[in-house]
Amino acid sequence: MPLFIAVVLVFGLVKKVPLFDAFCEGAREGIKTLLSIAPTLVGLIVAVDMLKASSATDMLCSFISPAAEQLGFPKEIVPMILLRPISGGGSTALLTNVYKECGPDSFAGLCASVLAGSTETTFYAIAVYYGSVGIKRIRHTLFAALSADFTAAVMAVLTVRMLLS
C-alpha cells in the first residue's frame, strides 16, 4: 500500500497536480461519503446487536444451519448473502459482526470478506442508474444481477476453501 501511494504521488508530480490541494479535496469527499453512510450504519448495527442479544439469531441460525452446512456455507454468512444486494450499510454491520464473533481470519470471516469484496449493493445501483434516465421497465436486469450476486457468494466460499485453508 505505501508503494501504491508513492506511485500515485510521483504520477501526480509528473502530471503537475497540486498534490496537497487535490488530497484535501478528495478527503473532503471522503467525509461526505462517511457521513452519508453513518446513519444507516448506526441504525443497522443497533438492530443487528439487538437481534443477537435477544437470542433470535441463535434460533434463526439453528434453523438455517443444516441447509447451509449441506451446501458447505458457513452459517454466519447466510444473513449477509441475503442482505448484501439490498443494503450496503446493513451488510457492513453483519460483516463486522462476523469479524467480532469468529475473527477476520476464520473460515467464516474470510468468506464474509470475499463476499463483501466481490458484490455491490445491487438494488441501489439499479435504482440510481435507471432512475436517472426515467426507465421503468428494466426487463431481465434484476435476474442477471442477482444471478451474479449468487455466483459471487458460491465462489467466495469455494475460493476461500481452495486458496486460503
Partner: peptide
C-alpha cells in the same frame, strides 16, 4: 483510512489515472 484513501485517489484522478 477512508479520508486518506479518498485523498490519494483524488490525486490519481486529477493526474488522469
Amino acid at each position: 483510512m477512508m479520508l486518506l484513501w479518498s485523498g490519494i485517489m483524488e490525486i490519481a484522478q486529477r493526474g488522469g489515472f
